[in-house]
């Protein structure tokens, strides 16, 4: 429980209509569908849970090896293995509904129609607070290449999804855009309620002895502290382009890392790879943000967001 002194500090945020007790969420693909971490942490202390990417019928994903550890990071090529909409709703939603924490479903598709259909299905599912639209996965051909980096396709997918759901819509932008601001703006114009950035960055590692790629899929996506400065810069740029709130993601290991994103303009953050190092990271980040605010005599988290002095 909070003690009386820290109670004066208000960490709650509203991300495109989703009310969160703390701005610290857990990122898609690093937290499974929930039950995996249930024995280890108190879900009610999370800002929100973003579950692993779901497509319509599900898919088996990539061959192994699927992850490789690199300097200050991790390259993954899971290939979006998932049980599909039905499988997820049946097997995991009853579990997730038990907690007092918003559930955001990360969705993807191979075609515009599939994105639409997935969005429409989740619109009917009790307990889903929002949809994070993954147009940026580096591990499937359709992800980044088609939807995430082509402005026309990007707009088509988002507009289509928007027409099919009332849920909070959060496009997750591809990280390697030279014009992140214009994509952010496009997303806002298509009716997005918030933005997530960034996804993992296309990357590769090679075993020099065998001269083989270290991943079964050859290439993957880099995550972890190695990408954080890139992510902070993209969040800062995107924040200047739009009014909708932003969820900063990329290599956050501690409260200072999270604060960097928030000062750059993110209203919330999500913890990804750090969950693997320490499943309690999100709680520690929340506690650290609280003590930072205490130290700086701040009472509301809004006093931090977008305050970078440039």
């Amino acid at each position: 429980m909070n003690n009386t002194m820290t109670n004066e500090i208000d960490l709650s945020v509203n991300i495109g209509g989703i009310r969160m007790k703390t701005p610290v969420m857990v990122a898609s693909g690093t937290f499974g569908y929930g039950p995996e971490y249930a024995d280890l942490i108190d879900f009610n202390q999370l800002g929100a849970i973003v579950v692993k990417g779901i497509c319509l019928e599900g898919t088996k994903g990539n061959p192994t090896p699927r992850t490789v550890e690199v300097t200050s990071g991790l390259i993954n090529a899971i290939g979006l293995q998932n049980p599909g909409v039905e499988g997820f709703v049946r097997n995991y939603m009853p579990f997730l509904r038990q907690f007092d924490v918003p559930v955001i479903v990360n969705i993807w598709g191979k075609t515009v129609e599939e994105y639409e259909e997935v969005a429409a299905r989740f619109d009917q599912v009790e307990g889903v607070a929002g949809l994070e639209v993954n147009v940026s996965c580096p591990n499937i051909k359709e992800g980044r290449g088609l939807f995430g980096t082509n402005p026309d396709m990007f707009r088509r997918v988002l507009s289509a999804v928007r027409t099919r759901t009332r849920l909070t819509l959060i496009p997750k932008l591809a990280p390697d855009l030279s014009h992140i601001g214009s994509f952010a703006k496009a997303a806002e114009e298509c009716g997005a309620d918030a933005l997530s950035l960034i996804n993992s960055i296309p990357a590769m590692a090679i075993d020099v002895e065998t001269r083989r790629p270290k991943l079964g899929n050859v290439t993957g996506g880099l995550s972890g502290p190695a990408i954080r400065p890139i992510a902070v810069k993209l969040v800062w740029e995107a924040a200047k382009a739009v009014k909708i709130p932003m969820i900063g993601i990329g290599g956050i290991m501690n409260a200072n890392d999270a604060l960097e994103f928030m000062i750059a303009g993110a209203s919330a953050v999500a913890i990804g790879t750090a969950n693997f190092t320490d499943p309690g990271t999100a709680m520690k980040v929340t506690a650290g943000i609280r003590s930072y605010m205490e130290r700086h005599s701040l009472t509301h988290i809004k006093q931090v967001v977008g305050t970078v002095k440039t």
Binding site: T30, E36, T64, R66, F276
Partner: peptide, 15 residues
Amino acid sequence: DRNMCCGVGACLTCV
């Protein structure tokens, strides 16, 4: 024996 990442079933590395 499989390379592991999360160890708890969340990341789908060790399949």
